[in-house]
């Protein structure tokens, strides 16, 4: 534990010293239009290794459009998305070839969908779901694949005996946890999450958030979390970006933005949450 704390510290330290200050993801002037309508416009930010960024905003504010542009599911109209690839350093994922982008999608990137059924193969067993990414990058030993699947099911608190059950037999919370296991099994460096707790009841949400926080810290993951739930970002995100009508209206450290909102919309957003 102390070794990890030290690693985090030295990482921060070198960041501050400017040793090798290289963001993991650099977004420059990203815009996406649906015809004349604006999806998101002129979004720029840097995401550093090990950093979790939250994107909040109301429905239709362009959060999901932005996330899909970043993850390569949508082609942005303008702007660049630079990712620090393992092999070739900073690469623009918008202009890179499709095979390269899809390769990133199953190795260094992970995408957690709001509805687990979008991110899972519902007619394939839990073990097969977790093993798919391993097999996609060339794993050909059944025993090894199964072992790693069991290991990952354990990490997301799914009993090993459920490995041969299909996700259709799982509850909503279990499906979401299975989706997370399936995404993290190849050790990605950047995770995109689209409303990961949407549609779950509060106690299940709390458990999922706990789990996510543990995994993010433990694996040193960078993550971009899109949500409208301020409690989620309060718990998980280091930094916050507030969007309205396709534009970023406020950015800053999570606590700073939530405790001292500057922009009128952010103030409205923060005050809309019922304090229990």
């Amino acid at each position: 534990m102390s070794g990890k704390v030290f690693a985090e510290f030295s990482q921060d330290f070198s960041k501050n010293l400017g040793g090798t200050p290289q963001p993991l993801l650099q977004v420059e002037g990203l815009s996406k239009f649906y015809g004349a309508r604006r999806g998101c416009a002129d979004v720029s930010f840097d995401l550093w290794p090990g950093e979790v960024m939250g994107i909040v905003g109301e429905s239709g504010s362009g959060k999901t459009t932005l996330l899909n542009c970043l993850a390569g599911h949508l082609a942005p109209d303008t702007g660049r998305v630079l990712f620090d690839t393992r092999a070739n350093g900073m690469q623009d994922t918008v202009t890179m070839s499709e095979p390269e982008r899809r390769m990133l999608g199953r190795t260094d990137w992970a995408f957690v969908h709001q509805h687990a059924s979008d991110g899972l193969r519902m007619n394939v067993s839990a073990g097969g779901n977790v093993g798919e990414r391993l097999m996609a990058v060339g794993a050909r030993n059944y025993g090894d694949i199964r072992e790693r699947a069991i290991d990952w099911l354990g990490r997301v608190e799914i009993a090993a005996e459920r490995i041969d059950d299909r996700p259709t037999a799982f509850s909503g919370g279990m499906r979401q946890r299975l989706q997370i296991a399936r995404n993290l099994v190849t050790g990605p460096r950047l995770v995109f999450m689209d409303e990961p707790t949407g549609g779950l009841d509060v106690s299940v949400q709390a458990r999922l958030l706990d789990l996510l926080r543990g995994l993010v810290r433990e694996m040193g993951l960078s993550a971009i979390i899109v949500t409208h739930d301020l409690a989620v970002v309060r718990l998980l995100a280091d930094r916050l970006m507030v969007m309205k009508d396709g534009q970023v209206v406020e950015t800053g450290l999570t606590d700073q933005v939530l405790d001292d909102p500057q922009h009128g919309y952010t103030q409205l957003l923060v005050s809309s949450v019922l304090q229990v």
Binding site: G127, G128, G131, A136, Y142, R146, D164
Partner: peptide, 13 residues
């Protein structure tokens, strides 16, 4: 990779 998922399912079942 998906083709092997099918074979994996066979063995698992």
């Amino acid at each position: 990779g998906l083709m092997h998922v099918k074979l994996y399912e066979d063995i698992a079942r």
